[in-house]
């Protein structure tokens, strides 16, 4: 990546974000990626005068992450989205949809996690089919 990335810990996160807000940064968004079975990688993107700055947080799936939506109201949708997609909990969200922003009951939980806590055979329908396909070592047949 061209821009600088600063690593932060979960405890220092809200403080760092508040500092950036004072400096006049605008929250662009959060990007979440799954690293392995128990860790997620969250990037916080900020922008000032068309320059980007990123904060990187490595969060264990089981622990809750403090929400930055009290600082930046704009973070509310994206944090809810990550709750839907990855099953991570954000603490202190301004409006909490509890994992139902996009998904209904029958859609699989945490669809963006390849390593699910539940085993694949407990799922059924298209979800299981998708999983079987993605775990296939050579997914080139498409």
């Amino acid at each position: 990546m061209r821009e600088e990335i600063m690593a932060v810990s979960a405890e220092a996160l809200v403080g760092e974000v508040a500092k950036l807000k004072v400096l006049g940064y605008r929250l662009v968004t959060l990007s979440c990626t799954e690293l392995d079975a128990s860790n997620l990688d969250i990037l916080y993107h900020f922008d000032k005068d068309l320059g980007l700055k990123h904060l990187r947080l490595t969060a264990p799936k089981a622990a809750a992450v403090p929400s930055i939506s009290p600082v930046y109201f704009a973070a509310l949708l994206v944090e809810n989205e990550i709750q839907d997609f990855f099953g991570l909990r954000f603490e202190g969200l301004v409006v909490d949809y509890r994992g139902t922003l996009y998904l209904e009951e029958e859609a699989l939980k945490t669809p963006y996690c390849r390593f699910s806590l539940r085993s694949a055979d407990q799922r059924e329908g298209p979800a299981a089919a998708l999983d079987a396909e993605t775990n296939h070592p050579n997914a080139e047949k498409f």
Binding site: L103, A107, L108, P111, P126, A129, L130, E133
Partner: peptide, 9 residues
């Protein structure tokens, strides 16, 4: 269509 394999479809 193009989305047929997506999980929410």
């Amino acid at each position: 269509g193009i989305f047929r394999e997506a999980y929410n479809v």
